[in-house]
Computed example of a mutant assay.
Amino acid sequence: MHEPIAADFVKQREDTVVSICFATPKANAKTFETIRKVAAALDEVYRFRETILVVEDHHRDAFLPLVEDVRDVRLFVVRKGTEYYERRVIAAEEAIGDLVLIAQEDEVADLDVCAFLDHAESANAIALANCGKRQPIKTLLSAPFIALGRLAGFAVYPSDFQSIAMPRTLLNHILAHDEPRLALRYPPRDPRLPTSSFKASNEVSSRGAFKDIGRRMQLLQTLLVYLTPIILSAVAISSTILTLLGLGYAAWIIGAVIVVDTLAPGWLTTNIMLAVSAVFMGVSTLGLSLGLQHLLRGQNREKGERVSEEVNRIDLFGKVAVDLNVELESEDWARKNGGFDPQTKGSAG
């Protein structure tokens, strides 16, 4: 006869809905196995769990067997070329859980996701995973990103994993941020968005200093675009200084004309003015260019639907009501039967 163990008496949590989101899953057997493993680990602790996958349209069919094999999987299809940060926002916007984990499959493969989510919930903070080790080369290469991140108001640290967990309230604040794409990867320096570090047991081999160069270039561009107001302010200040210097230089020329009888040819004056004009035009053009990029990115965010298709739609809220044996009395039914009664009908089992 099977001897009972402590795990046999552990009841699944029914007070929390968990959403785990894979924004850039690869269409291979290793990724599929990781998703199955993570879903099984969550099912042991949480009764209500959804898994969100955001895939490009040409990988849609490859994920269909996974949708059929793992329960409560929602598959969202986006157009080819949708950038990494944008896909994370799409996944976060579609999540309905009280706890949300934006996961990178190679990181969560060896990460205790239940402990990670519990850490975020207990601390009521944005949980950032890292192994506590610093690689000198990676830190050196990341120095410009860290500096730009500080100027832009983001906590950009190379040691942090891409996986991030947080309660629903904090996720709502992040999605309301001016730049949610960056905020979902590097939390803003905001007292309303506390962060907490979660110690991972192992470093991830795929997080090398020279990998994902294209993604780092996207990050650099996004940081520069977000810094547009600061750059434009610097341009305004430099323009004012240059204007004052120009006026002072003009006054000096007038004084020279009055005081000096014979002036040398204007070669020096012409070249100095050309140099000043070139510097001014260069900085001004940079500021205008970044400003236009900022406006264009804002317009792209406000455009219509970015998700072309949801392959497997699930009614998780309905499932919660059925599983907990809760029946809600509708307002229409109450009106037909002599008025509205705010009390609900049924019991929670």
Rank of each mutant, 00 (worst) to 15 (best):
E3K: 11
D15V: 05
S19G: 07
I20C: 07
K30L: 09
T31Y: 04
E33W: 05
R36A: 13
K37P: 01
D43S: 14
E44G: 15
R47K: 14
E50R: 11
L53A: 00
H59V: 03
F63C: 07
E68L: 08
R71L: 08
V78G: 02
G81Q: 02
T82A: 06
Y85E: 04
V89H: 03
A91F: 00
E93V: 08
E93H: 00
G97H: 05
L101H: 02
A103H: 01
Q104D: 15
D110K: 12
L111I: 09
F116Q: 00
N124P: 06
I126E: 01
L128P: 10
C131P: 02
R134T: 14
Q135V: 12
K138S: 12
L140F: 15
L151W: 11
V156T: 09
V156K: 00
A165V: 07
T169L: 08
L175D: 04
A176D: 13
A183V: 05
R185C: 09
R185A: 12
P191L: 00
R192V: 09
F198L: 04
A200I: 05
S201H: 09
E203N: 12
S206G: 00
R207N: 10
I213G: 01
I213N: 02
G214N: 02
R215I: 00
L220T: 08
L220S: 12
Q221H: 13
L223D: 04
L223T: 03
L227E: 03
I231V: 15
A234N: 12
A234T: 09
S239F: 10
T243A: 15
Y249M: 12
V259F: 11
D261Y: 04
T262F: 06
G266K: 02
M273S: 14
S277G: 11
V279Y: 13
V283W: 08
T285L: 11
G287K: 10
S289Y: 15
L292A: 11
Q293W: 10
Q293R: 14
L295Y: 11
L295K: 12
L295H: 11
L296E: 08
R297D: 07
E302L: 12
E302I: 06
K303E: 09
V307L: 06
S308N: 02
E310N: 09
G318D: 10
D323K: 14
N325G: 13
V326P: 00
E327T: 14
L328Y: 14
E329H: 08
S330M: 09
E331Q: 13
D332E: 15
R335E: 14
N337Q: 12
Q343M: 13
G346W: 04
G349I: 10
G349Q: 13
